[in-house]
Simulated scan of single mutants.
Amino acid sequence: MNAEFMQAFEQLGREKGIAPEVLFDAIEAALISAYKRNFSSAQNVRVALDRDTGEIHVYARKAVVEDVADPRLEISLPEARELDPRYELEDVVELEVTPKNFGRIAAQTAKQVVVQRIREAERGIIYEEYSSRESDIVTGIVQRIEAKNVFVDLGKAEAILQPSEQIPGEVYRHSDRLKTYIIEVKKTTKGPQILVSRTHPGLLKRLFELEVPEIHDGIVEIKSVAREPGLRSKIAVHSRDENVDPVGSCVGHKGMRVQTIVNELKGEKIDIVKWNADPAKYIANALSPAKVVAVDVNETEKASRVIVPDYQLSLAIGKEGQNARLAAKLTGWKIDIKSESQVQTPE
């Protein structure tokens, strides 16, 4: 290998973010394997690659011993002292064994090592970039669907939307533009594996953070999120500024802000409720759109009993218990809903 060859390797390494010394060390290690493979050698060898000229020298390393058991790995003290009288027992003698045609093999090996290291470095960069973006939203394009897994092209990398993370009933087509939530980035032998979700509550939270400036600026805070993906969600918000309405900020002018998020989630209904430090008021808000007459709370068991007007009972419970279930998930409280007539005439 000539000097220009070495400069090209060094420049390429720098461009790809690989320290030249790391690259050259890897080439030397690969050349040892190439030498042993091509010359059927069981010797202990060292390869020296001149960083400036590109010259390669192969040295057989032999331990200085009293009695030689394996001449490929050992040399007697008298023989060693013929080479240099300063040698002592247990020293290591290096004898040059560079083959005449080793340059061609070396160049080919070096090229393979550089390509491999660059690929590893690029995978490492992608892993670092996306692992730092866990719990964030990414926008990608649906590339293909295999065994119900949806593969999403993120530009530099490919993400996998597994069946368990897909919104029930949502149809994904090739070239669809899709917002997803990064739940995990794994290191694999084939490079980083990015797992994304359309069902995670974090997706809803991040969509609101992107869509509502007051949330992004920290004036309005998202306290809790509860989702039944594709059907209905509830989000509890609180304003740090008493002059700012947290619910109104999230709904937006004529409902524009929340509608954008509903459209992104293909029609998933979203209830935005006001968080309150008082559990009774918070639970009443969480059961929106139903109107609540009274809430009794048991702090010890974190359970509540909610009384609603008779005509509001089905609304408070919701279809198949959905409204009550989401309210319980949102608040973290058990909620038992009764109508006024049930309370007056106990069963």
Rank of each mutant, 00 (worst) to 15 (best):
residue 101 N to A: 14
residue 53 T to A: 11
residue 96 E to S: 13
residue 156 K to M: 11
residue 134 E to H: 01
residue 119 R to G: 08
residue 165 E to R: 01
residue 93 V to G: 03
residue 114 V to G: 03
residue 101 N to C: 02
residue 54 G to Y: 07
residue 94 E to K: 06
residue 146 E to I: 15
residue 109 T to K: 02
residue 78 P to W: 14
residue 97 V to A: 04
residue 78 P to L: 15
residue 143 Q to F: 09
residue 64 V to S: 04
residue 62 K to H: 10
residue 51 R to H: 13
residue 130 Y to S: 09
residue 164 S to K: 15
residue 80 A to D: 02
residue 51 R to I: 07
residue 109 T to L: 10
residue 94 E to W: 02
residue 78 P to A: 14
residue 77 L to N: 06
residue 121 A to H: 00
residue 139 T to W: 00
residue 86 R to P: 00
residue 70 D to G: 04
residue 152 V to M: 03
residue 147 A to T: 06
residue 58 V to M: 09
residue 71 P to T: 09
residue 53 T to H: 14
residue 78 P to T: 13
residue 111 K to F: 08
residue 145 I to P: 04
residue 86 R to T: 13
residue 115 V to C: 01
residue 82 E to A: 12
residue 65 V to M: 09
residue 115 V to M: 12
residue 104 R to N: 08
residue 139 T to D: 08
residue 102 F to Q: 07
residue 80 A to L: 04
residue 97 V to P: 05
residue 70 D to Q: 04
residue 130 Y to I: 08
residue 111 K to Y: 06
residue 94 E to C: 10
residue 108 Q to R: 11
residue 66 E to V: 05
residue 143 Q to Y: 11
residue 88 E to C: 03
residue 123 R to N: 14
residue 102 F to C: 12
residue 147 A to P: 00
residue 156 K to H: 13
residue 101 N to Y: 06
residue 130 Y to K: 02
residue 129 E to L: 07
residue 130 Y to D: 11
residue 162 Q to M: 15
residue 90 E to V: 01
residue 132 S to N: 14
residue 144 R to E: 12
residue 142 V to P: 05
residue 120 E to L: 03
residue 138 V to G: 04
residue 157 A to P: 10
residue 76 S to N: 03
residue 128 E to Y: 01
residue 71 P to E: 13
residue 149 N to M: 02
residue 55 E to C: 01
residue 103 G to P: 05
residue 68 V to S: 10
residue 165 E to Q: 15
residue 61 R to M: 14
